[in-house]
C-alpha cells in the first residue's frame, strides 16, 4: 500500500517535474524569442532606407506583369513611415502609397494616391487583406514588422537555404490592432539574426497560405539587405517578386516626404 502510494507519489512527482520543466522551457524559449527579435531589430535598425524596386507578378497561368517603384522609409518597425511611388509603366507612373505606423494597438494609416483622380484614398482596416495593387502582398504585408504587436515563441531551429535559422512563432496580440493573420512563423538566420522567411497563416489555415522569402543578402554600407523578396500565394499559385536596386541606408529624408501633401503632389516622391 505504502509502496503503491510511494510509487504513486513518485509518478505524480515525475509528471509534475516534467510539466514544470516544460513550462520553464517554454518561458525560456519565449523570452529567448523576444530577445532574439529585439537583438535583430537593434542590429538592423537604420534611420532611413531607400531603394528602387522591380516588381514582377506571375499568376498561375504564367502571365507576367511588371512594375517599377521607388521606396523610401524613415524609422524602423513600430515607428516606420513608408512611401512608395510607382515609376513604371507610364500608365501607372505617379501612383503613390503612404504607410505611417501608429502607436501600439492601432493599425498604421495607409493611403493610396491615384494621379488620374488627383486624390488619395484611405485604406480602411477592413481592407488590410485586400491585394496591394494586384500583387500577392496585401496592405498588411506592406507594413513594417513590429514584434511588439505579437506574442512570440521560439519553436526550434531549422535550416533555410543552407543557413541555420531560429524558428519563431508570432501570434498577433489582441492589443496590437487587427491582423489578417492568425500566425506567422519567422525564420531568423542565426549568424546575423536576419529574417529569411515568413510562413503566413490566415485565420483557419492549417497550412500557410503564403510564403514570404528574402534572399540575395548583401551588405550595403554596413547593413545587411535582402535584394530579392518573394511572396508566394500557395492557394492562388501566384508569385510576386521584388528585386531591390540602388539601396541606400541612412540618407536624410526631406521633412515633408512622408506626408499626405507630398503623397498628393504631382511628381512628388
Amino acid at each position: 500500500m505504502s509502496i503503491k502510494r510511494s510509487c504513486g507519489n513518485n509518478a505524480i512527482g515525475i509528471v509534475t517535474a516534467a510539466l514544470l520543466s516544460a513550462l520553464c522551457a517554454a518561458m525560456a524559449w519565449g523570452a529567448d524569442a523576444r530577445a532574439l527579435l529585439k537583438e535583430s531589430e537593434n542590429r538592423h535598425r537604420t534611420k532611413t532606407q531607400q531603394y528602387a524596386g522591380n516588381l514582377t507578378v506571375v499568376n498561375k497561368d504564367g502571365k507576367v506583369r511588371k512594375k517599377g517603384w521607388k521606396s523610401f522609409r524613415q524609422g524602423y518597425a513600430g515607428d516606420a513611415r513608408n512611401l512608395i511611388r510607382f515609376t513604371d509603366p507610364p500608365e501607372v507612373k505617379g501612383v503613390g502609397f503612404l504607410s505611417i505606423s501608429r502607436s501600439a494597438g492601432q493599425n498604421p494609416d495607409q493611403w493610396l494616391y491615384l494621379p488620374s483622380m488627383k486624390r488619395e484614398r484611405r485604406i480602411a482596416t477592413q481592407d488590410r487583406d485586400a491585394s496591394f495593387v494586384g500583387t500577392d502582398f496585401n496592405y498588411e504585408d506592406m507594413e513594417e514588422f513590429d514584434h511588439e504587436k505579437y506574442k512570440v515563441a521560439l519553436q526550434g531551429e531549422q535550416t533555410v537555404e543552407g543557413y541555420a535559422c531560429y524558428v519563431i512563432a508570432a501570434t498577433p496580440r489582441e492589443s496590437g490592432g487587427q491582423s489578417v493573420y492568425e500566425k506567422k512563423i519567422l525564420y531568423l538566420r542565426k549568424d546575423i539574426l536576419y529574417l529569411l522567411r515568413e510562413d503566413l497563416y490566415q485565420k483557419g489555415d492549417r497550412q500557410p497560405s503564403k510564403l514570404f522569402t528574402l534572399s540575395d543578402l548583401q551588405n550595403v554600407d554596413g547593413h545587411w539587405a535582402a535584394k530579392k523578396w518573394e511572396m508566394t500565394n500557395i492557394n492562388k499559385e501566384s508569385k510576386t517578386t521584388v528585386v531591390l536596386k540602388e539601396i541606400v541606408f541612412d540618407k536624410p529624408q526631406p521633412a515633408g516626404r512622408f506626408t499626405l501633401q507630398n503623397l498628393n503632389r504631382e511628381g512628388g516622391d
Binding site: K67, F86, V92, V95, L114, P115, S116, V133, G134
Partner: peptide, 12 residues
C-alpha cells in the same frame, strides 16, 4: 479576369 488591378485603379 482583371487584367491589371493597378492599371485599373490608375486609369479612370
Amino acid at each position: 479576369d482583371l487584367d491589371d488591378p493597378l492599371l485599373f485603379l490608375a486609369q479612370p
